[in-house]
Each structure stands twice: as C-alpha cells, then as structure tokens.
C-alpha cells in the first residue's frame, strides 16, 4: 500500500483542499507521499512536509510548471506513479482536469468525488447531484481517486517528512496558460470557509447583493456564495457559484438569502452543519432543508440580522 497525493498550491502556499484529501489518504493506511509540482515552490514542499502522516514529499520544479497545463501535470504524475497503489488529488478544477488523464494512461478507472473510504478498494461517492450515494469497488491494480474536499476535515500539522527532489518531465507543448483573472475578495475561501452567506435571485440586483451580503459576511467572517441564477444575472462572478456544477461546501453555518433551493443548488450545500434560510416564499424548497427558516422580506431581515450580530 503506497499512496501518492498530488498537491494543489499556488507555488507559495499549499491549498487547504490538499489537507482534506490527505485525511482521505490516511484512511486508506499505508505510506503517503505528497507530490508538489511547481516552480519556485519550496515553501509549498515545506508546508506539505509538516503535515501529519506524510512519509515523503516529492518536489518537482520547472519553469513550465509555473502556471501548469493539465497535460504536463498528468505527465509528471505518471512519471512518478509507478509502484503506487493509489493516486489521489482533491476534486478541484485542477484535480478534475488532471486525474482522468492519469487514469486513462494507466488504463484504470477513476473514482470521482469520493466522500467515504470504506476499504482500500471500496469508496462512496455522490451521484445525481447528491440525490443518491453510490458505493463502488475497484478491481484495478491502481486506484485513481479525486476527493470531495467538503467531506473530509483538513489534516493537521505534526509531521517532519523528508523533501526529495524529483526530475521534471519536459514540456509537452500541447497547451499553455496565457491568462488568469482570479477573484480577490479579502474574504475566507469559499471551499473551506467556516461560515458561508449565499444569495440568490431574490436579492434583485448586483448592488443589493453586495450592499446586503457583504456586511453580513463581514460580521460573521464568512465567505460569500451564490446560486446559478444569481451568477447568470451578473450579481457575482462565476467562481462563487454553489451547486452541482459549482462549488460544493459544507460549512459550520450556511445562511441562504433570497434563494429558493433548486436541487442543483442543494447538491452544493446540503451537508452544511446548520442551515439558515431567509425567504419570502414559505413554500420554497430551501425551507425544507433549513434548520432555521425565517419567512419574510430579506430587505428588512438582513439589515436587522447585521444589527443583531454587531
């Protein structure tokens, strides 16, 4: 049993998603090596080496891994993958782009968005937007897995694994990243936030969305999320979408404001610990999953809630 975990990072810090994937890896048992692929990314390798339960950190640097293309990342994973029984990554946009390539070249199935480790070859995962849970067993010699981050707590520090440099594969030249527009909010990251405040079409406009939800998020030190309808209406950027096709979150507290709770949205948040729904429609589906439902005008309730929290 040897597990290889592909790290997610920005060359500077390790993404918390990797710490959650590590927790899933530790449930498999066996030795765990973390693979850090980047450029000038020594701090990331050091982060990874301090995590509990890690045997080794494999550290690869090359200029073409500064803003890596999925094709190159997959080649690098394949170059070190031999001898491992499991190859894991968090089910982020990076993991979802790279791991199917790895699995296809190894001629093995990939198991997506694992939410439970039931054995070394048996895993549970959501299907149909989380309306059903499937348990699958893999008969392949290597299990290639992406881990749903919200289903596992982040692993703590407490280790001191050796960092071993690994030779980089050459640039395959198939594609390259030519630009990035990353959203900077100054708020906690949506995928790992303790509290999420999410808004829907009920907020009516981008101005209202910001005027009401920003101060509420500020009071609660929360991340801001949105429904597909709110994103499509231009209230917020696409990376804040929560749901089947957006982010999946499971914070301690989820406050849903002016959103009805379409099944595609519920798929992205129904595992939150405590759900609060504020909606004018007493029949909105979100009120059926909410622990606390407050029916009324959000334009009165939200400012009152902000005042009460101050």
């Amino acid at each position: 049993m040897r597990v290889l975990l592909l790290a997610e990072h920005n060359n500077d810090t390790l993404d918390p998603a990797t710490r959650s994937a590590l927790t899933a890896a530790r449930q498999l048992g066996g030795d765990i090596d973390i693979l850090v692929i980047g450029d000038a990314c020594r701090p990331v390798a050091e982060n990874a080496s301090r995590l509990a339960g890690v045997s080794r950190v494999l550290w690869v640097e090359a200029a073409h891994f500064r803003e890596p293309a999925a094709e190159n990342l997959a080649s690098q994973v394949l170059a070190v993958a031999s001898g491992y029984s499991h190859v894991l990554a968090a089910a982020t946009s990076m993991g979802k782009s790279v791991m199917p390539r790895v699995a296809a070249v190894l001629d093995v199935a990939q198991i997506s968005e694992v939410i439970g480790v039931l054995g070394v070859d048996t895993f549970s995962r959501p299907i149909y937007a989380g309306n059903a849970t499937q348990t699958v067993q893999s008969f392949d010699p290597v299990k290639v897995i992406t881990v749903r981050v919200s289903a596992f707590d982040a692993s703590d520090e407490g280790g001191a694994a050796p960092i071993e440099p690994v030779e980089a594969v050459s640039d395959c030249g198939l594609s390259r990243v030519v630009g990035r527009q990353l959203t900077r909010t100054g708020r906690p990251e949506l995928g790992s936030a303790d509290v999420v405040v999410a808004g829907g079409r009920g907020l009516g406009s981008r101005e209202n969305f910001i005027a009401l939800l920003e101060p509420l998020a500020q009071e609660l030190d929360a991340a801001i999320g949105a429904t597909r309808a709110a994103v499509d209406a231009g209230f917020v950027s696409n990376d804040l979408q929560i749901g089947q096709t957006g982010k999946v979150v499971a914070p301690r507290l989820y406050i849903a404001v002016g959103l009805s709770g379409a099944i595609q949205h519920l798929a992205g948040m129904k595992d939150s610990q405590v759900i609060v729904a504020i909606n004018k429609d007493a029949d909105a589906p979100i009120l059926q999953v909410a622990d606390y439902g407050l029916v009324g005008d959000l334009f009165e309730i939200v400012p009152a809630l902000i005042d009460a929290l101050r």
């Binding site: 198991i111 959501p126 309306n131 849970t133 893999s138 008969f139 759900i275 609060v276 909410a290 606390y292």
Partner: peptide, 28 residues
C-alpha cells in the same frame, strides 16, 4: 472496471423549525 456495490439515499436532514424573527434566530 468498477462494480457498484450499492446505491442508497443520502442521509436525510432532520426537520428544522421556523423562527418568528431575527431575535429568535440569533438566540437559536
């Protein structure tokens, strides 16, 4: 390559409750 062992309903959430106003919500 993968065998489906079982498909089941996800755990249902316990029914919540309505709160009358912001004060009751904050207290809860």
């Amino acid at each position: 390559r993968l065998k489906t062992i079982q498909v089941c309903e996800p755990p249902a959430r316990a029914a919540g409750r309505r709160v009358a106003d912001v004060a009751e919500l904050v207290a809860a």
